[in-house]
């Protein structure tokens, strides 16, 4: 039986506690609590080779479920979808047992704190990054589900948005596992809770709205009318109105479709990002090289062999500079 009170759904592990894994025999020293939510508590901890984030839950199946998602993300080579998974285990302490998993510690403020500190110019840029990640996630058959500012961390510099909390991540076509009302298409009466790309894109639009209305408002009449009224009333949101509207009403066929539209708003000139640069941004970690090269080669197939070779060379060059810059 599970029992939850409004006050009681978090674990309480004191800093300094050492957590021993029963199966894999790794140890983690808790440094401090990073946060908690409906599915457990996350701690910053020290492992033998550095700092990690460790998530614990009274419900072992919710740990297993999130781990399943992270494992399948790991198969998408070199992507930055979610934190990378480091360990899964049980901790047996004197009067009980609790399941946990260990993941990459993503250091930085959550999206809204970042925007408050750095200014709203960053909003568009970060949303472009997010949409790029979502495109990859979607093309691998997933829908993120519980997309909201608290589940988005901005690391860096250079600033880079990262998703955490895969508790809501759902196989496309199934019922969304977990969501938060303000960001939920169903709550606003604007569609179903079946996992599809548009479900996440709706949430992206609501995240943009949340950036302007830090205090989330409730549904009144609901629907497009209420939300668009809020958008029009905010000077910050004016320029995004068209994009938000289309995302709210499910008119983007994909994340990259929405991304292109958003880019056009942010960069109205004809000088949208040239192709090679784009590829570099798409492919940070080394494992990804061959794959993303292939992808860009496929796109350029019409251009002929020579052009392909030149592009390849340019990409490699920029890529190595990128790697180099990551090292220093």
């Amino acid at each position: 039986m599970m029992m939850n009170n409004p006050s009681k759904n978090q674990c309480n592990v004191k800093p300094g506690t050492v957590i021993h894994g029963k199966w894999h025999r790794n140890s983690y020293a808790v440094i401090k609590e990073l946060g908690f939510g409906a599915n457990g508590t996350v701690y910053l901890a020290r492992a033998t080779d550095g700092q990690v984030a460790l998530k614990m839950s009274e419900n072992p199946m919710s740990i297993t479920s999130e781990v399943n998602v992270l494992k399948s993300f790991a198969k998408v080579q070199g992507s930055a979808l979610g934190p990378s998974l480091l360990d899964v285990d049980d901790w047996e302490y004197p009067d009980g047992k609790i399941s946990f998993y260990v993941m990459e510690f993503i250091k930085g403020p959550d999206l809204l704190s970042f925007l408050q500190k750095k200014g709203s110019d960053w909003l568009g840029v970060l949303m472009l990054q997010l949409l790029k990640d979502l495109q990859v996630l979607h093309s691998n058959g997933w829908v993120f589900g519980d997309l909201k500012p608290e589940n988005l961390i901005v690391t860096g510099p250079p600033a880079r948005i990262r998703c955490i909390d895969t508790g809501g991540t759902t196989v496309s076509g199934r019922a969304i596992k977990e969501f938060t009302e303000f960001f939920d298409r169903g709550y606003w009466g604007m569609g179903s809770r079946k996992a599809d790309e548009q479900y996440d894109l709706f949430a992206v639009a609501m995240i943009i709205i949340n950036a302007a209305y830090l205090k989330r408002f409730n549904r009144a009449e609901g629907g497009r009318a209420q939300l668009i009224k809020a958008v029009q009333a905010s000077p910050l949101l004016k320029k995004y109105e068209k994009v938000i509207d289309r995302a709210l009403t499910g008119r983007y066929i994909s994340a990259s479709d929405m991304r292109a539209d958003l880019l056009a708003v942010l960069q109205p000139s004809k000088l949208a990002a040239p192709a090679p640069k784009k590829t570099v941004q798409q492919a940070p970690p080394p494992t990804r090289t061959s794959r993303s090269r292939q992808a860009s080669v496929q796109k350029k197939k019409k251009g002929g062999m020579a052009e392909t070779a030149v592009i390849l060379a340019v990409i490699s060059l920029i890529y190595f500079f990128y790697l180099y810059s990551q090292l220093v």
């Binding site: 072992p60 199946m61 479920s65 399943n68 049980d90 399941s99």
Partner: peptide, 22 residues
């Protein structure tokens, strides 16, 4: 029970539970 299995095997069982839930 599921919890007596090593974490690696729990994953597959969870997938079955997910599928059934759907």
């Amino acid at each position: 029970t599921v919890e007596d299995l090593p974490p690696e095997q729990r994953g597959e069982i969870m997938e079955v539970v997910d599928e059934l839930g759907e």
